[in-house]
Design a protein around this nucleic acid. Structure first.
Length: 465
RNA sequence: UCCUCCUUAGCUCAGUUGGUUAGAGCACCUGACUGUUAAUCAGGGGGUCCUAGGUUCAAGUCCUAGAGGGGGAGCCA
């Protein structure tokens, strides 16, 4: 019989078909008991809940039970039965126990009692075995699936944009260099610079900071596309909201204006929140009880409220007439600070806010210019606790305006020829946005540090595991 | 990168105006208990006080530098 044949603990706990013999496999969370009887809480990651294994101690060799300690991996065969004790509905009366791997209790880092999230970050290789991170990673999977389901059901196509890129046109941040050159002794040009013609791709290449520009190429052929892939920023950002390697979702839609764009972003965020509530309730309940007592209420409120939509100019007016003393005073033309965003979302409107019509000078070159000559059709979706969770815009589809803007900003027009071709040939109004997956995960799980929603986070000075 | 706080047992932390042999809870080990739920009770072992200098008769405690971590800010998703 194949060793994979066993009942997942999630299925066993939900089973109504009792008094049958099953086999479960997993990792021991705790063991209690005395010389006559032992209670083993077993978890296999299929659910946050453990199954209780009851063992009649004299029936098993001392040598075996001695190794049934927190962290050990075992296979248990026995009768699934209604629990004699209270606290669980069913339990397994062990007939056979096989030890796969022991875990020395003196050196195994995970204990029965709570650990700090900071400590668990240092043992990221073992933290998936905790209740907290089991819950988070199950939710992370479910959200990934929900993203694909949402777009697939809407007729969007999943487009794979490049991870290695030769374009630095978006200027979204510092980039990681990709090279095969010998760093100790790189080839040089006659004037002493590094000669990238001899590099693997024959030019300077980097890890992508955004798939948007390539995403637009797809949208202007397939109508509606999305990307969902790893993204890299070499910024020296040390905050609970930034990673050097993160995952981003970037839908791009032909024949969408800024209002269609906002409608999609709001519907998408609500769908993901509802999907989490509907499919991860046990895990969310655990996080709600252990970390954030308002989590479930906050998630439910987002699904049932309309996001407030205001312009940048209106936002500035609200802030100036609020009477609140901000550390950084605001005036028309300067970007909103974190404290301003938090005021609008958490105190003034008390719901998600979408801000549009930003001054063109604080936004990217590709955003659609309004007729006032001052603002662009950008949109930022601001969430409670998180701040900016989505950034997007209607794109500039007029060739002349786009070329002029590129010249004003001194961007390398030559490197953007392929991008400008989409405006030269069959240009259409189109829009898109980017959602930081881990920022969405912060919102869904109620965690406060982005390093706790990524299995193996990469941050400045940290690439462990 | 800037500001700020922190670093003492496996984990979470206490440690007074600088003063004998650095403590607690949990974890771990041993023992007790026929059904426990973060089991309980009794006993036991366990320390490079982050690192390197310095001040002092004396430093976990004061000073300087460095490393690591938390929070806030900037950049952004």
């Amino acid at each position: 019989m194949s060793i994979k044949n066993r009942t997942k603990i999630k299925e066993a706990l939900n089973s109504t078909e009792l008094n049958r013999t099953i086999t479960v496999k997993g990792w021991v969370r705790t063991r209690r008991g005395n010389k006559k009887i032992a209670f083993i809480a077993l978890n296999d990651g299929s659910t946050i809940n453990n199954i209780q294994v009851v063992a009649d101690v004299p029936s098993f060799p001392d040598e075996l039970l001695r190794h049934i300690t927190t962290g050990a991996s075992v296979s248990v065969t026995g009768k699934l039965a209604p629990s004699v004790g209270s606290g669980q509905n069913v339990e397994i009366h062990a007939e056979n126990i096989e030890l796969y791997g022991s875990a020395d209790p003196a050196s195994y880092p995970l204990q029965k009692k709570g650990h700090s999230l900071e400590f668990l970050r240092e043992i990221a290789h073992l933290r998936p075995r905790t209740n907290t991170f089991g819950a988070i990673f199950r939710i992370r999977h479910t959200m990934s699936y929900a993203i694909h389901k949402y777009f697939n059901d809407k007729g969007f196509f999943y487009l794979h944009t490049p991870i290695i890129t030769g374009s630095d046109a978006e200027g979204a941040g510092e980039m990681f260099r990709v090279t095969t050159l010998d760093m100790m002794n790189p080839p040089r040009t006659e004037d002493g610079k590094i000669n990238y013609r001899e590099d693997f791709f024959g030019k300077e290449t980097n890890l992508t900071v955004s798939g948007q520009l390539e995403g637009e190429l797809g949208a202007l052929a397939l109508s509606d596309i999305y990307t969902f892939g790893p993204t890299f920023r070499a910024e020296n950002s040390n905050t609970p909201r930034h990673l050097a390697e993160f995952w981003m979702i970037e839908p791009e839609m032909a024949f969408y204006d800024i209002n269609d764009n906002m409608d999609l972003a709001e519907d998408f965020l609500k769908f993901l929140t509802e999907f989490a509530l509907g499919h991860c309730y046990d895990d969310l309940l655990f996080l709600n009880n252990m970390y954030d007592k308002e989590l479930l209420d906050r998630l439910k409120s987002v699904t049932s409220t309309d996001f407030k939509r205001i312009t940048y100019t209106e936002a500035i007016d609200i802030l100036s007439s609020s009477g609140v003393k901000f550390e950084f005073p605001n005036s028309w033309g300067s970007d909103l600070q974190s404290e301003h965003e938090r005021y609008l979302v958490e105190r003034h409107f008390k719901k998600p806010v979408i801000i549009t019509g930003y001054p063109k000078d604080i936004k990217a070159f590709y955003m659609k210019q309004n007729d006032d000559g001052k603002t662009v059709r950008a949109m930022d979706v601001l969430f409670p606790r998180i701040g900016e969770i989505v950034g997007g815009s209607q794109r500039e589809d007029e060739l002349l305006k786009l070329e002029t803007r590129i010249k004003e900003l001194g961007l390398p027009e030559k490197d953007l020829k392929w991008y400008l071709d989409t405006r030269r040939f069959g240009s259409v109004p189109h829009s898109g946005f980017g959602l930081g997956f881990e920022r969405m995960m912060l919102f869904i799980t109620g965690m406060s540090n982005i390093r706790d929603v990524m299995p193996f986070p990469r941050t400045p000075k940290n690439a462990e595991f």
